[in-house]
């Protein structure tokens, strides 16, 4: 039941009902119905047919396998980068620090297609590093390293953006306390830093994984759409759709959508933990504040 929270938002009961109905209506039309229809379409021939479409097409099988490989590699890279970058920015003051923080966000504001093109300009055959890579016999563009690079690029901000504020709000004192008690760098990280940021980190990882699995634009530019070689799940969905193979396309789409739903649940559970810990921090700080105030009035 909705309750008016303030005189400004207070409306009549019927007004409230209308607003709630409108919200549900829009979410229903734009999100629930289309997503449900993907599943309906995918399973219209029954579970057996759905399974056969996925399992008996080698290119589709490869696309699923490729996506489930590229995404974790990109996420793993971002986890390491995210923790290291957040630690650097939260614990040290250095010239260009603010600029660095701003650059973390760049992949969010740049269109993924532009990101893909930029990678081609650097790693492509005619690109900056093209001759060097060719001489070494390494293929980046139109190959899986390019897919990993493109996916890493578009998901770059996700882990660092989740971890950084938590690390900043916790502060360096616990780490210093651990050092003064004899802990070395690795012990400080595994026993103090990591447990303190674990939920924020997991949240970032889940978000990055969801984005990595679904990425289309940047991956599309660097992949070259070679079926059975560089087609990821989203690229496969599009290709099957363009080839008028709607049931197959829908079946792959339903796998993607299913993964998204799993992510949503995971995200919801983790967010509750993150919020609970933030509340705890706030309560601890408030308790500290009142005590300090009391002491000040002495």
């Amino acid at each position: 039941m909705s309750r008016p929270a303030s005189p400004i938002t207070a409306t009549t009961r019927s007004g409230n009902v209308a607003l709630v109905a409108a919200a549900w209506g829009i979410v229903g039309v734009l999100v629930v119905v289309p997503l449900a229809s993907v599943f309906l379409e995918a399973f219209s021939g029954g579970f057996g047919a759905w399974w056969a479409t996925l399992a008996h097409d080698a290119d589709t099988r490869h696309a699923i396998w490729l996506s489930l490989t590229v995404a974790p590699v990109a996420v793993a890279f971002n986890t390491v980068f995210g923790i290291a970058a957040a630690w650097l920015v939260a614990r040290f003051r250095f010239p260009g620090r603010s600029l660095l923080v701003a650059l973390f966000d760049l992949p969010f504001s740049v269109s993924p297609v532009v990101a893909g093109l930029a990678l081609v300009l650097i790693f492509g055959r005619q690109g900056l590093l093209g001759p060097t890579l060719a001489a070494l016999g390494w293929k980046v563009i139109f190959s899986w390293p390019g897919l990993v690079l493109a996916t890493t690029f578009v998901t770059l901000p996700l882990v660092v953006r989740e971890v950084l504020p938590v690390m900043e709000s916790i502060g360096p004192e616990e780490e210093m306390a651990a050092v003064s008690l004899g802990a070395n760098g690795w012990q400080v990280f595994t026993r103090v830093t990591l447990p303190n940021i674990r939920w924020a980190l997991l949240h970032g990882v889940v978000l990055a994984n969801a984005r990595a699995l679904g990425e289309f634009g940047a991956v599309s530019v660097v992949s070259g759409h070679i079926a059975g070689v560089t087609d990821t799940m989203p690229l496969r969905v599009e290709k099957l759709f363009q080839e008028y193979r709607q049931p197959a396309s829908m079946a792959v789409a339903s796998v993607l959508a299913g993964l998204a739903l799993v992510t949503l649940v995971a995200k919801y559970v983790i967010e509750r933990r993150v919020e609970a810990e933030a509340r705890e921090r706030q309560a601890a700080r408030a308790a500290d504040g009142t005590a300090a105030e009391g002491a000040g009035q002495r």
């Binding site: 004192e173 616990e174 210093m176 306390a177 003064s180 026993r191 103090v192 447990p195 303190n196």
Partner: peptide, 13 residues
């Protein structure tokens, strides 16, 4: 050296 921090810096977890 034993060090007691201003805001205690207890390991919260």
């Amino acid at each position: 050296v034993g060090f007691v921090f201003q805001h205690y810096a207890l390991f919260r977890h």
